Computed example of a mutant assay.
Amino acid sequence: MRTRWTGRRCDSGERVHIEAEDGVIQSILPASEPVEREDELWISPGWIDLQVNGFAGFDLNGDVTTEHDIAEVAHALFSHGVTSFCPTVITGSAARIRQAMRAIHAACENNGLLAEVIPGIHLEGPYLSAEDGPRGAHDRAHIRNPDPAEFADWQQAAGGRIALCTVAPEKEGAAPFIRELCETGVKVSIGHTMANPEQLQQAVAAGAAMSTHLGNGAHPVLPRHPNYIWEQLAEDALTAMFIADGHHLGASALKSMLRAKQNRFILVSDSVMFGGMPPGRYRSAIGHEVELLANGRLQTAADPRILAGSAQPLVCGIENAMKLGGISLKDAIDAVTKRPAEAMGWPGLGSLRAGARANLTLFCVEAGSRIRVRQTVVGGRTVWSEELASR
């Protein structure tokens, strides 16, 4: 059965008809019909979020991660335009990480839609800095040096689905560990680090190609230069992930970092289970006791300077990248489609072309930079729409 959508491409502004069959885009043709409504749809490849710890009250890092948690996070993300995401498993005991990996693997094996929307798992820790600041809200008790055998055990539990691993280059054995992961096809990102320039260069030489939420997971006060943020901004071999939720990076920092990285940046949400929940204090595996403020800032109760992930969906980062960072709609959308797909080596995702997966996000832009998601399509099938949600 063929399905069809009409709207303006985000990359060119051209109004087109997109047709798909069996989950694959078959054709993209110019649309000559007159526009019938002022808020005509924009069409982009489906949005990709490489860092999702939970959302809408469902936690992927609790004591026990369930298939239900994973499915509910996915369905909540659909309403915000996300068609692909990396469940992100953070620092914890070996047993807890293994259990989460098994649950995600089982969820994908038992649910075809989840297998479609989860192209890989992001392991963020436990091979991170134990230092206050760079450690962020990760539990110091479980921070440790890279262990190839331990990682292999988790990869087996995940059914080979771990696609991205965040590592601090200064950890003992980090460089050979990074090289080994890269040789097996796992992408490595530098993060939660206080590495010196030499250690950062060793990580890049070993194959690290990304920076996890650059500008965060850092000391509150740093030497003006050199420091590990400047070093990663200046390294052209690193694609930087940024959290543009309005809290992780101030407007001037976000604007400067986007300019520094030019077309080598990706937007992520780093969302946790408290996204969409009312303000208050909560218990969490990320940061233990955390406080969600009315303005959406999520911080540790012990030290309000330390953030505990984000309570905002990816769409807020797209809006802020345009509003605060001063970039174009095309550039912002590329940062959640084309660039993450290229960085992760997922050729079927992130592009509008015949032969690509029919993962689409259809939306309107209101009041300059406010984005209103209208429809989310995975494999040619509508998984969420404004019309269906209003019934």
Rank of each mutant, 00 (worst) to 15 (best):
G185L: 05
F151H: 07
S189W: 12
I162N: 03
V167T: 08
A168E: 09
A168P: 11
A163P: 11
A152T: 08
G160Q: 05
G159L: 06
V186S: 07
G159I: 01
A163T: 02
G173C: 09
P169D: 03
E180M: 15
K187F: 05
A157M: 08
V188N: 06
C165G: 02
G159H: 10
C165A: 15
A168S: 14
V167N: 10
C165Y: 10
L181I: 01
G185V: 04
G185A: 07
A163C: 11
A174D: 07
Q155V: 01
G185Q: 03
G160T: 06
P176K: 08
A168K: 04
Q155P: 02
L181D: 03
R179A: 15
C182I: 01
E180A: 15
E183D: 15
L164C: 11
F151T: 00
F151K: 00
P176V: 01
G160F: 12
P169T: 00
A157H: 10
A175K: 11
V186Y: 13
A158C: 09
S189N: 03
V186G: 10
S189L: 03
R161F: 10
D153Y: 12
A158T: 02
E172I: 06
F177R: 00
L181E: 04
C165L: 14
I178Q: 07
L164V: 05
Q155N: 14
T166W: 09
P169F: 09
L164S: 10
E170Y: 11
A163D: 06
T166P: 08
E183M: 05
E180N: 14
Q156T: 11
I178P: 09
A163M: 11
P176C: 09
W154S: 07
E170Q: 12
G173P: 08
G185Y: 08
G160D: 09
D153L: 11
A157D: 13
G173I: 01
F151Y: 15
E172H: 14
V188I: 03
G173W: 09
L181R: 06
E170C: 04
C182D: 00
E183A: 15
A174E: 03
A175H: 10
I162D: 07
G160N: 04
G160M: 06
A158Y: 10
L181P: 08
R179V: 00
R179K: 15
C182A: 12
A175D: 06
C165P: 02
D153Q: 12
I178D: 05
G159V: 07
E170P: 06
F177E: 00
